[in-house]
Design a protein around this nucleic acid. Sequence first.
DNA 1: GAATTCATTTGACAAATGTCACAAAATCAT
DNA 2: ATGATTTTGTGACATTTGTCAAATGAATTC
Lengths: 189, 189
Amino acid sequence: MDILFKPFIDHFSTNQKLSENTIAEICNHLSVLDLDKKYVLIKENQRHDFAYFVIKGAVRSYYLKDGVEVNTWFALENDMVGSLHNFKGNPSRETIELIENSTLISINLKQVKPLMFSNIQIANFINAIIEDYALFLEDKIYFSQMMSSIDKYLILLDKEPQIFQRIPLTYIASFLGISRETLSRLRAK
Amino acid sequence: MDILFKPFIDHFSTNQKLSENTIAEICNHLSVLDLDKKYVLIKENQRHDFAYFVIKGAVRSYYLKDGVEVNTWFALENDMVGSLHNFKGNPSRETIELIENSTLISINLKQVKPLMFSNIQIANFINAIIEDYALFLEDKIYFSQMMSSIDKYLILLDKEPQIFQRIPLTYIASFLGISRETLSRLRAK
DNA sequence: GAATTCATTTGACAAATGTCACAAAATCAT
DNA sequence: ATGATTTTGTGACATTTGTCAAATGAATTC
């Protein structure tokens, strides 16, 4: 096994021990990618059924609204990148682009998914990924729906301070759902 | 098997055939509930690890912000009710309350979940539920993040017209993230 | 079916945020 | 280093939306 795969495998097998065979079978469908800043992983409106795991780097996701980029989230180290909506065969609602030169693992979901009906360990491995993803989505909704812009800003500053070092405020403002001028004024306080 | 369980079992076993034994094993942890309007299924800040499936009726979810109810969604027939956040042992962020007299199936997740490590059909059954839930969350985020209030209103009117028959506009307004006065003015056009 | 409660609409005003324009600061590329 | 580009900050003004108050309409209860 490529040593770079380990964090990904470990991250999603905390509730069961995977056999050597299962690990090998999963790794057959993984590859390591080294890509430069500004590289576009997934284009809006295109079909795509890979998922990614960030080993090192930063990724952003955005869509165009009346010609303006609206950022929807950022992924850093140990975060997953991808969407079930895409995996189900629908054209992507977002563009996913690297903000830094990054090392990623790509996962060929189309090949791995069918294995879950014959290998119970793989079923539970995939389950861990999707469960983690659903929890992430729940938090994202909680964050976006239940908090004011100022609260969101303060919590982001508290919980993910690296974001502010690595990601331009323009992107963060549109992620928070406010104009960059308003964010700038919030920060002035 | 109680005949009322069938829609729930069928809804989440479209990608595999469940054996009689597996179905029986799942049904052991289901019950049918008949409850009246205004009954509170889950209280904000309390722990709770049941999930529900709506056979007939309507359910809303809300939280209190500065003493005001903010509605976060509505479930009708064939929708699931519950959250992974709660299931992971955290106190609920929302209150879940019936809007109509309803018939629900309750699922004892705490008892069913461990079976997924020994029964691959149950693993894939649970997977179908969580996958469905994650897709629902993705759509919810897309809806709330990528659309203006007017678009949200029009899409809701187009895709879920029953909502407007069955759920008060006050609730819908707070779900859309606008005041009921603003919704009323939007509708005037 | 009358009374009471709840839901919806409308108006007047205030507050928050967006938009546009431009300046300052930081970063990047050669 | 230096010029060019990108990012961030600030002011003036317009627009949107919220808030408060009151009236109308609908639904529920006794």
